[in-house]
């Protein structure tokens, strides 16, 4: 079986994002405390956002202004505009989760999942 990897520039650009995503998932699935999972979720969030930005920059990385000749290969503004919402939602999620962590830390100062899951 001949597996040929198509290593164009676009694919190489996406590899760090995929690695970041995998690191985040690994952290989320193996975290022992609430704080670790909170940070891991942020890492996954960053990976998703950078994937959007890089895919939008495939056609070119210039500012999308039409009318001048030097702006010939411009980036797609549509995904970049849309990902702003996702960034804000990510921040909102982090804020809510931190508030919950603050409340839970009064009863469980170490915030370990082991203690919280066995709480009766």
């Amino acid at each position: 079986m001949n597996i040929s990897l198509d290593l164009s520039t676009n694919t190489i650009l996406l590899i760090p994002c995929v690695i970041l995503f995998i690191i985040g998932c690994f952290g989320l699935l193996n975290s022992k405390t609430i704080f670790n999972s909170l940070f891991s979720l942020d890492v996954i969030d960053t990976a998703t956002i950078s994937t959007f930005v890089i895919i939008a920059a495939f056609p070119g990385s210039q500012t999308p202004i039409i009318g001048f000749e030097r702006y010939s290969s411009y980036a797609d503004p549509y995904p970049q505009a849309i990902i702003l919402t996702a960034i804000v939602i990510g921040f909102a999620t982090q804020a809510l989760l931190s508030a919950i962590a603050l409340r839970l830390s009064r009863k469980f100062p170490l915030l370990r999942f082991k203690d919280l899951e066995n709480d009766k």
Binding site: L97, I100, L104, K107, F108, L116, D119
Partner: peptide
């Protein structure tokens, strides 16, 4: 605390 953890 239990409801808070569930919502988390």
């Amino acid at each position: 605390s239990r409801a808070l953890f569930n919502s988390f």
